[in-house]
């Protein structure tokens, strides 16, 4: 039983580490801020989630697991909020996102001052 739990925890930790490193590679490779946000979001969701889940398996039914769960919940609630604040600040300041070849005819990012309160 102990071996089973250790293996599960191993797999979760390795998976989380892999996603975190891949996200960081994306942070370096992607061409502009908006696309880099996707890479950073990846490390924040599945990277952090799997690593904390792996630690929870180690912790068992104790207060340690509860604290790890609280950290995970905080991260999952705060990370999209700060990413949205970042995207909104960059966009309101008129930073143009790079668009792909197949432009979908979205509204041009000019005229950002029509924001309703």
């Amino acid at each position: 039983m102990q071996i089973l739990l250790d293996t599960l925890s191993w797999l979760l930790l390795i998976g989380g580490s892999a996603f975190a490193v891949i996200g960081a590679v994306g942070l370096i490779r992607f061409p502009d801020v908006y696309s880099r946000m996707h890479a950073a979001g990846m490390t924040d969701t599945l990277g952090a989630g799997l690593i904390l889940a792996g630690l929870m398996v180690q912790g068992g039914f104790t207060l340690v697991t509860v604290k790890l769960a609280l950290i995970l919940v905080f991260l999952l609630y705060t990370s999209p909020t700060s990413t949205y604040a970042l995207a909104n600040a960059a966009y309101s300041r008129g930073l143009q996102p790079l668009l792909g070849k197949r432009d979908t005819g979205a509204p041009p990012p000019s005229a950002p001052e029509t924001e309703p309160s």
Binding site: A20, G23, A24, L27, V33, R36, M37, A40, T43, D44, G47, A48, I51, L52, I71, L75, S79, S82, L86
Partner: peptide
Amino acid sequence: VLAVNSFGTKTVL
């Protein structure tokens, strides 16, 4: 800012 925020999240881990 994005990189530093990501750095901070990793610090927690």
